[in-house]
Each structure stands twice: as structure tokens, then as C-alpha cells.
Amino acid sequence: MSGHGSFPPPGALPGAAPSSAPPLVPPPPGPPLAGGHWHRAAHKPGAVPLRPLGVGDMYDATFKIIRFNPRATVGSAVLVASLAMALPLVVTGALTTVLDLTFDPGASEADVSGEQLAGLLGSFGSLLLGMVLMSFGMIFVTGMIAHVVMAATLGRLLSLGEAWAATEGKRWRLVGLAGLLFVATSAILVVYGLTWVPVVMAFEVWAAVVYGFVTVPLLIAGMFWFWVRVAYLPAAVLMLEDVGVLGAIGRGFALVGRHFWRTFGIALLTYVIAQIAGSMLAMPFSLVAQFAPVLAGTGATLVLVMVGFTALGTVVSAAFVAPFTTTVAVLQYVDLRMRKEAFDVELMTRAGLPAPTRPEAHQR
């Protein structure tokens, strides 16, 4: 898997042309430390230093990958989100024209005709369907970005087409993985919901309240555990290793291992950052959609404005959230392999760098 470009060397000016010179090789390692390990500078042929990564390393590499390869990261997310969000715009525009849709927010239910109600349901229903389709499309974006990140660790830039081609043969496995995890998550929630039936029917209200106080925190903790141990890494594993769906789940489970709390902390922090940033990016469009009745008054344009700006805000939010969260997750996969399997040595070999002759001091 090769790209048409490479990441600029450390210290290069942003936007400068990639250097054709071979990567600099650090000086030979110094004297061995206690335990036979050697202290040496980390190789960095691309966006990622080839050593166990800290949180700052991951976020720095994430923004570098997105910055220097926006087409294959942000571009893929925008393309998928735009195609999905085009559906509610087309449907709303058609309903506005064909049904002569009008909507007065101050009107009572009796004043809303069946035609208007059908138009509103169709319009906002298409918006919901568009979001579902976008979620489906983002599954493929996840697979593409996994290959983009792995190439970036070696100093290579994959184009959008190359990233898509790299997922060939595993795209429907990725869909199957997402479907399996969704079914498993839903089953856990359904089973827990069913446990409330005998509690509500057989016990007093106070007993049900106590049951809720005890089991809801346990459910939340269990869902976090399931997210990190079972659902967090399999997509990256499936894309970057020769395994099937179940093998990817088992492999991700094993990689997290005793690094649960560290993986959980970084994953949760990344999710919080992504949601805050995504909400801020979408806020201007959401405000326009919410204040559409004031801006557009009454009439057919009102629903179109509301749906249109909601769709646009969704696209803008997805342009940041999907690449950011996926890139960090793949970097956590790379980090765990470097910590547990000396994956950095393998990456050095792939990048054409001299592999270390002494074992590195990995955090086990």
C-alpha cells in the first residue's frame, strides 16, 4: 500500500513540499540501562513516533494526520454525510412543491390539514432516515481512516481513492461487525429492561426505586466495559489484520487487556472533546434552524429552512467528529501493539528504517 506523498519531517514548515531526502537516522543508542534495555531516541518516519504513545502524542498525531491529509479524512466524512443529508433536502423540496406545504408554528392542531401533516412527517422522517444512512456510511469511513492512519505512521499519504481501495474485501465484514455490536448492545439493554417487569409487578414502589439505584450504575459501568473491551478496537483490527469479524472482536479484547483504564480514559476524553467540538461547529446552523419561524415567518420555506440548516449542521459536525474519534482509536490500537508486541520494530522495518539491535523499553 503506497501513497503519492509523505508526511513532512519534524520541524518542516506547514504546507512545504515533502522532502525527497531519506529520513534521518538517530545516533546509535547509549549505554544500556538497568535490565538490559537501551535508551534511544524514537524513530519518527511519519506523523507518529514509533514508541509507546502518550495522550499528547496521540492528539498531536491525530491533528497532523487530518491537517496534512484532509481529503482522505475530513473529505471522506464530508462526502458520506453530504450524500446522506441530500436525501432530506430533496424530499423536503419535493414535498414543499408537490403538496404546497405550509406550516404556521402558531396554528392549532385543528388548523393543520392532513396534507400538511403528511408533508411534515415525510420531511422530518426523511431527515431521520438521512441520519441513519449517514451512520451506515460512516462505517466505511472508519475503515478508510484506519488505513490512512497506518500509512501515516510510515510517512505515507493515502489519497481518498487509495484509502477506499484498501478496504476492498473487508467492507461488508465491517458492516457485519457494526451490526453484530449493535445487536449485542441492544440485547443487553433489552434484557436489562425485562428485569424491571417482575420488579415493578411484584414489589412496592420503594423496592423498585432501590433496584434502580443499585442496577442503573451497574448497567452504566457494564456498558462502558463492553464499549472498551469489546466494541472499541475491532474495527481497526479488522481493517489492519488478517482476521474475521469474531477474530477482530477477540483480538481487540486481548489487546486492551490490562490497559483497560488507560484505554477507557483516552477513549472517554476523546468522545467528550469530539461531542463538545461537534456541537460548537453545528451550533450556528442549529440556531438558524430553531429560529427559522422568526426568520422565515410562515409558509412553505419554513420547513425547508429548518431541515436544510439541520442537515448542514450535521455535515459540518461529522466532518470533525468522525475523523477525530476514528484516528485516535486507531492510534490507540497502534500504541497497544507497540506496548505489548514491539510493533514499533515492525513499523520501522516497513518504513525502511534500521530496526533496533537491542530491546526497547516498552511499558508492559
Rank of each mutant, 00 (worst) to 15 (best):
P32C: 12
L120S: 11
G193M: 12
A118W: 03
W206C: 01
F343L: 12
I139M: 03
H39R: 04
W172Q: 09
I145N: 08
P29K: 05
L101W: 07
G252R: 00
L83K: 01
L101C: 04
A94F: 14
D335S: 01
T325F: 03
G297W: 03
P52W: 07
T73E: 02
P88F: 01
A17L: 15
A86C: 10
L189A: 10
S19V: 06
T314G: 15
Y271D: 09
E360K: 07
W38S: 14
A34S: 13
G299E: 02
H43V: 02
A34Q: 09
D57K: 07
D111Y: 11
A254L: 00
V48C: 00
L281A: 12
G119Y: 13
V191P: 02
V303K: 13
M280N: 03
R364Q: 11
A166G: 10
A72P: 00
N69P: 00
Q332L: 15
A221L: 10
A208W: 14
F260A: 00
V199G: 15
P70M: 04
M348W: 05
H147E: 06
G250D: 00
G125N: 05
V214H: 07
G161P: 02
M138K: 10
P293V: 02
T102W: 04
V328G: 05
I273Q: 10
T102A: 02
M85C: 13
V334K: 01
F253I: 01
P217I: 06
A21L: 14
A322M: 15
A322E: 14
G161Q: 03
G297Y: 01
A351W: 03
L121V: 10
V175W: 13
L240I: 13
H147I: 05
S6W: 14
G155I: 00
A110P: 02
G143P: 10
A41H: 14
D57N: 06
K64G: 07
L177K: 12
A47M: 03
L189T: 11
L180V: 00
W225G: 07
H147W: 06
V334Q: 08
L194D: 03
A277M: 09
L120W: 03
V216N: 13
V330A: 08
S159L: 04
E341L: 07
F68K: 03
A355C: 07
T153A: 13
V197I: 15
A184C: 06
A107G: 02
I139Y: 03
P31D: 15
G193S: 10
F343Q: 14
A202M: 15
S113P: 02
V183F: 06
A221Y: 05
T326C: 11
G35I: 08
I65W: 08
H362S: 11
H37G: 13
L160T: 06
V243Q: 04
H362N: 14
A351R: 12
I276P: 04
K64E: 14
M150P: 00
V315E: 10
M223G: 05
F253P: 02
A296K: 12
P23S: 10
L33C: 06
M283Y: 11
G265I: 07
Y211M: 12
G119H: 08
Y211H: 15
V25G: 11
M239G: 04
V205H: 15
L127T: 14
